[in-house]
């Protein structure tokens, strides 16, 4: 059985799983980092979004071996700074309803803002439209992003 060395939220882990195991299930079942959510398993909804070397990736379609020697950040890692403007604005505007997709929304947005602190409307639309929300919090996500981007300037 192959062993993989992973760096998640600045901690090193050794996991023993089959090659091809999606990183999502390694995070959830092996490392008990359940903030990363399973929803579609096909890279269609964005609920499982994490950062790999700073880029937003869908952990349900990234295999464990692809993640070796890379820096992985999950929502728990981002939440080590609860004062992150995204968290503060999300609470202030009460964006969440059921909350299940929100880690994916937040990780997707955080990666976008890290790469471009002044994203265009089109860039925001394209990026955020990849993450589905069944409760319909899009309207508040838009308000929150507008506020965050405005306050950065």
């Amino acid at each position: 059985m192959p062993k993989y060395k992973l760096n998640v939220n600045n901690k090193n882990y050794n996991v023993t799983v089959e090659a091809g195991t999606p990183l999502l299930w390694v995070l959830r079942d092996n490392l008990n980092l359940t903030g990363t959510k399973y929803s579609c398993g096909e890279g269609l909804c964005g609920s499982c979004t994490i950062h790999i070397d700073g880029k937003a990736e869908r952990s349900c379609i990234v295999s464990v071996e692809e993640a070796v020697d890379k820096k992985i950040t999950t929502i728990e890692g981002l939440a080590e700074n609860p004062d992150h403007p995204i968290f503060k604005t999300w609470i202030e505007l009460e964006v969440s309803q059921c909350g299940y997709c929100q880690p994916g929304q937040i990780m997707t947005l955080a990666a976008m803002l890290d790469s471009d602190s002044r994203p265009s409307r089109k860039e925001i639309d394209n990026t955020m439209s990849t993450v589905l929300c069944r409760c319909g919090t899009y309207h508040r996500i838009r308000k929150a992003i507008d506020k965050i981007v405005e306050e950065k300037q």
Binding site: G35, K37, A79
Partner: peptide, 27 residues
């Protein structure tokens, strides 16, 4: 009034059914 469960949900700490782990549990 702010929702009581929002911080846990956005920090990835909220436990949904799918996140429940019980000692000795299989899948």
């Amino acid at each position: 009034v702010h929702r009581v469960d929002t911080p846990d949900k956005i920090f990835g700490k909220a436990i949904f059914g799918i996140d429940v782990v019980v000692p000795g549990m299989f899948y």
